[in-house]
Design a protein around this nucleic acid. Structure first.
Lengths: 137, 137
DNA sequence: CCTAATTCCTAGTAAATCTATAGAATTTAC
DNA sequence: GTAAATTCTATAGATTTACTAGGAATTAGG
């Protein structure tokens, strides 16, 4: 399941993607438009900024705006930024790999192979969902 | 990500699936064989029993055994039993559906459609992974 | 009936994580 | 200088996770 943070991030990106080119959105505007607690959204927007999905203009008349095309921001990326690995266990993860601590023999974890299949399928599906694809629905 | 509970459940089922027909496995035997904390495993085995994946014999010389074919116990079922919904949000879930509280208009949540696509793909993949498929790897 | 071995049941607990909120510092436009 | 905004740091409350503890109930065998 997605965390609220990831869900709110997606909704915020969706909001930004629906604004006019060159429009800068204030946090409060996004919060009200997408029904997200404002103070919580502040943190999320900063995370999105650190992840280079959005940029910001500070000070009066400042706000946030997309710096990547809505056509290539995928659900997979947002999941990874906020909720981490897409795989079901760290030992099956591409970006968040860690060995299992409870697999005692040196051979691979018995679950790993199957979970890598799931990961590949889920990842492929998640990479097919973009912000743009969510907007035009 | 899978919880430890779900991971241990899979490993326990895997262990049971590898025993001889008619063999009854004690908790301690499974715990040591699959490297799972024993007291924690007790609870998990009870959950698996309530879910009708295994049955038990009580008292001295008692233990647990599979009551479903290892060919039709799927990862999807175990995920649902221990970790709940496979969908990324409750509003996109088949078995754990709940409406979003933060989608203000009466129209559908903007994320729902995309997340249902993911759910379908993930579910299909998870239904393809059985205990038997994990054993013969 | 007694004992040992096992499942079954209910609580509790420590740590982590999640979902925010608070308040002040910084930046910018005018 | 002032107002309006982002940015930063801290913290609090609730929930969840991953166990652990202790004992009741059940069963086999002597």
């Amino acid at each position: 399941m997605l965390s609220h943070k990831a869900k709110y991030a997606l909704k915020a990106l969706l909001y930004l993607a629906q604004q006019d080119e060159n429009h800068i959105s204030r946090t409060i505007e996004i919060a009200e438009g997408a029904n997200i607690p404002k103070k919580f959204l502040e943190q999320i927007l900063l995370d999105l900024k650190r992840g280079r999905f959005v940029s910001s203009k500070q000070g009066k008349f400042g706000g946030y705006y997309l710096i990547r095309s809505k056509n290539d921001i995928t659900l997979a990326e947002i999941h990874r930024l906020f909720d981490g690995a897409i795989a079901l266990l760290p030992c099956a993860s591409l970006n968040f790999y860690e060995p299992c601590s409870d697999c005692k023999t040196e051979e691979e974890c018995s679950l790993r192979h199957g979970l890598m299949i799931i990961r590949d399928e889920t990842l492929k599906a998640m990479q097919g969902i973009t912000i743009a694809s969510l907007v035009k629905k």
